[in-house]
Computed example of a mutant assay.
Amino acid sequence: MLVGYARVSSSGQSLDVQLEALKDAECEEIFAEKRTGTSTTGRTELNNALSFVRKGDTLVVTRLDRLARSAADLHRIVRQLTEKGVAFQCLQQSSIDTTTSTAKLLLGVLASIAEFEADIRRERQREGIERAKAAGVYKGRKPTVDAAQVRALRNQGLGGTEIAKKLGIARASVYRALNAGN
């Protein structure tokens, strides 16, 4: 059985192109989610797909970066599939199919390139933020905690836990707000 997995990083992105490609590839079951690919943590549909596949099945994705953004995660997932007797196929990157040694080698190379691209993207983003901060353009996101309100509640004699509950924020946020005033 061909089992598809599709992923986009944010709720504003569309899964339509991936879902169509997986249907065209004749996947009988498709798991899809809108979650970041930087980690496998919290990716419920990926875990469901990995639990669903059985010996003789093939897990299909449209691109490697839809499955994992790091070489370590990709290799771990592929190893898990191999141990279950499940093949892996990637439609866009030279139709990677882990049943051949050459494809396994190519998978490793492409995984390393994908991880390198993600690192470069993070570097460029960090550099851009630093330049914007230096120019006074970027000031970060708006505060989500009203520090004055936190201090006022503290002055009324409330403790950190009570303030956090009253404002619906984490205790750590209360203490950060209080320390920021020092």
Rank of each mutant, 00 (worst) to 15 (best):
L19V: 15
L81F: 08
T62I: 03
Q149L: 08
S39N: 09
H75A: 09
E45I: 01
A32M: 02
V78P: 03
T58H: 00
Y175W: 14
Q80H: 07
T102Q: 14
G4A: 08
I129E: 10
R66V: 05
T144V: 13
A177R: 03
K104F: 01
I113V: 13
S10Y: 01
Q149M: 11
A164M: 01
T58G: 01
I96R: 05
T41D: 11
I163V: 14
L2W: 02
L67C: 08
D97T: 04
Q18M: 12
V174P: 04
L110N: 06
T144R: 14
T144N: 10
L81V: 06
V150F: 04
R151C: 06
A147G: 04
S95H: 05
R43D: 00
L158V: 02
I120V: 15
R151Y: 11
I96M: 03
G168M: 12
K34Q: 15
L110Q: 12
G37D: 02
N155Q: 15
R54Y: 00
D57F: 00
T41F: 04
E83L: 09
L167C: 10
R154I: 01
K165M: 13
N179Q: 12
S70M: 04
S11K: 15
R124N: 11
R76M: 04
E29Y: 03
A172M: 08
A49D: 05
E26D: 15
D119R: 07
C90F: 06
L2A: 00
K133F: 09
